[in-house]
């Protein structure tokens, strides 16, 4: 694809996304789309660390939580506006990301997995018990809704455009990073830590950078959820939440841009389409993850080329059919 066509496709997709909720989609679905968008940001973030750099992290939900709490408490206690709290909370999460990145320099694989689980458990317990700051087990209530002048983002539809903006930002940043020396360096670390280092990649710096970027995106998503739900509880940011984001990443296809988007949107909407499964949904989901990792370890994304070929064949067949009619 040339630069022109790529730009045209991008403009088309953005327009579609902007117009889509206006045409007869109920508020309930818009809420789902908002959640899907927030998970896209989380999953694209986790993609830096796990997908690109190959460093396992069970801590994405913690950065989500840290961002959410930071944003909520900043607006509630210091009175800054949401628009300042959004980047600030992402930066707070980023600092914690750097902190969690440090052990990844010393340990890898299973050790790193358990360290990140430990980190997220400690974060959750601190959020749950540090009553003076976080309101402890009561949770944070009455988080202000963002406003632009006198315009309040108090409906699902209004919030949709805020989420969409941040999602587009996250996608844009991800694309730019993947196709740069930074993306190549992260990718190299995933393939071989040692080879990357010997090829001149400062693997220590880039591992920490990967964690920092993951955390930054996690923080953005956290700020968005805090001011959308207006209520927070520490227990939402637990191990299973991190596991869910990891599943989104791998089911979609890690290391790419489209994979995390497919995974996050798909797994947020799927329960709606599979409502008839009721209580069995999650159990089937668990089995699905196991089976998918067995047969399609690069995720749903690996179907895209086949799908493209299929569509192409469909079109050529149609043309042939049309031609033969004449």
């Amino acid at each position: 694809m040339g630069r022109r066509t790529r730009c045209a496709v991008a403009v088309g997709v953005v327009t579609l996304l902007a117009v889509f909720p206006l045409v007869g989609v109920g508020p309930y679905y818009i809420r789902l789309l908002n959640l899907a968008g927030i998970y896209v940001i989380l999953t694209l973030g986790l993609n830096f660390c796990v997908g690109m750099a190959g460093q396992i992290s069970y801590a994405q939900a913690s950065f989500f939580g840290i961002g959410a709490y930071a944003s909520a408490l900043l607006t509630l206690k210091t009175g800054v506006s949401f628009w300042a709290a959004l980047p600030l909370s992402a930066l707070v999460a980023l600092v914690f990301g750097v902190l969690l990145g440090l052990p990844s320099l010393k340990v890898g694989r299973y050790y790193l997995a358990i360290v990140t689980i430990g980190f997220s458990e400690i974060v959750r317990l601190v959020l749950l018990n540090w009553k003076e700051v976080t309101y402890g087990a009561e949770g944070v209530k009455n988080i202000p809704v963002p406003t632009i002048g006198t315009f309040t983002l108090n409906t699902d539809l209004r919030y949709y455009y805020l989420v969409l903006t941040i999602v587009l930002f996250a996608v844009f940043v991800s694309i730019r990073i993947v196709h740069s020396r930074i993306g190549r360096a992260l990718h190299a670390i995933r393939m071989s830590d040692l080879a990357a280092e010997v090829m001149g990649v400062n693997t220590r710096y880039y591992k920490i950078l990967a964690f920092a970027l993951s955390a930054f995106f996690g923080g953005l998503a956290g700020s968005l959820i805090a001011h959308y739900d207006t209520y927070l509880h520490a227990n939402s940011f637990n191990f299973m939440e991190s596991a869910k984001i990891l599943c989104m990443l791998f089911i979609g296809g890690s290391g790419s841009i489209e994979g995390p988007i497919i995974g996050a949107v798909g797994l947020t909407l799927l329960p709606e389409w599979l409502r008839f499964l009721k209580d069995y949904y999650m159990a089937i989901y668990g089995v699905g993850v196991v089976l998918l990792m067995g047969v399609m370890p690069s995720g749903i994304r690996s179907l895209i080329p086949q799908l493209a070929r299929f569509v192409q064949r469909l079109f050529t067949n149609k043309q042939r059919a049309v031609r033969s009619e004449h």
């Binding site: 020396r181 190549r184 360096a185 990718h187 190299a188 990357a196 090829m199 001149g200 990649v201």
Partner: peptide, 8 residues
């Protein structure tokens, strides 16, 4: 290309 990292 990865090996060009330290020269960029």
């Amino acid at each position: 290309m990865i090996a060009r990292h330290c020269r960029t």
